[in-house]
Amino acid sequence: MSDATAGPRKRPGSPRKGAGKGAGKGAGKGVSGRRLGRRENLAGYLFLSPWLAGLVLLTAGPALASLYLSFTDYNLFDSPQWIGLDNFSDMFADPRWRKSVEVTLQYVAIGTPLKLLAALGAALLLSSRRRGQAFYRAAFYAPSLVGASVSIAIVWRAIFSDDAIVDRTQRLFGVDIGGWVGNPDTSIYVLVALTMWQFGAPMVIFLAGLHQIPRELYEAAEVDGAGPWRRFVSVTLPMLSPVVFFNLLLETIHSFQVFASALVVSNGRWGPADSLLVYTGYLYEQGFVNLRMGYASAMAWTLLLSVGLVTAVLFWSQKKWVHYEGSER
């Protein structure tokens, strides 16, 4: 899917092809090169085998089993009963399932762009060569190291409770809406803030992307009289767009799978009033608390297909806005 749209890239993607086209490098190999290639393939697969075994046994196998279970009524104890598409029709009629979709979409739609903006902003600040820059980079990355841990989510919950620091601060400014955690209208923003704060991984990728942009482009733009904003919009953004695309893709997929932070912030109840009922949380509850593993499997496959669809749309949209250097656009 990606290669069809991406066109020829100036990236270290396919070294063998590159070597063939290269100026005479490896030209003497000729026919025997192909056989060598096949043998190399075999060795490659051998080296891959531990990972392949993992893929088949731990990922593909259970995934296929869950595909089967999604068409059954399975309570973990009795053997699965084939019920066709009933799980799926139950799901679309289930108000809590719809609520979980709503909460998750809200989280993805608000959280992902904000997180990427934060990451890009920090990367721009940290990309210039300045004394102590390495320290700042490490410091900005630190929240991502601890951010995934349960303890931070607990701290987060405490910060956003009634009469805690956020509540007291906003009251100084005359905003009296109470703590965010206990209010169904605001609790989702606690999660959004938590994910935003963990911008370290996309930031590092943005940093690498920024360093790839040739300095001559900026110099040329400056000669043409472009100010900093103009340089950012006309040079940085287009040159960075493949990296933006990559980060957007990764973070979107990641956001759909939010689980632990919602579990901890809501204290395992996905509330108040189901306001933190993220998709995977509802899936988990149906499977392991209500013992409806068939239903949970149907939910899992629906999520997989939906994320696949969103990914496909993103790939399709990149034609419009992602600029690959050396390609026609």
């Binding site: 409770s161 009634d162 109470g178 703590g179 955690v181 206990g182 209010n183 204290n267 109840r269 509330g271 108040p272």
Partner: peptide
Amino acid sequence: SPKKVQQARP
């Protein structure tokens, strides 16, 4: 207030 009860949990 149920909001306060929720936040105090467990």
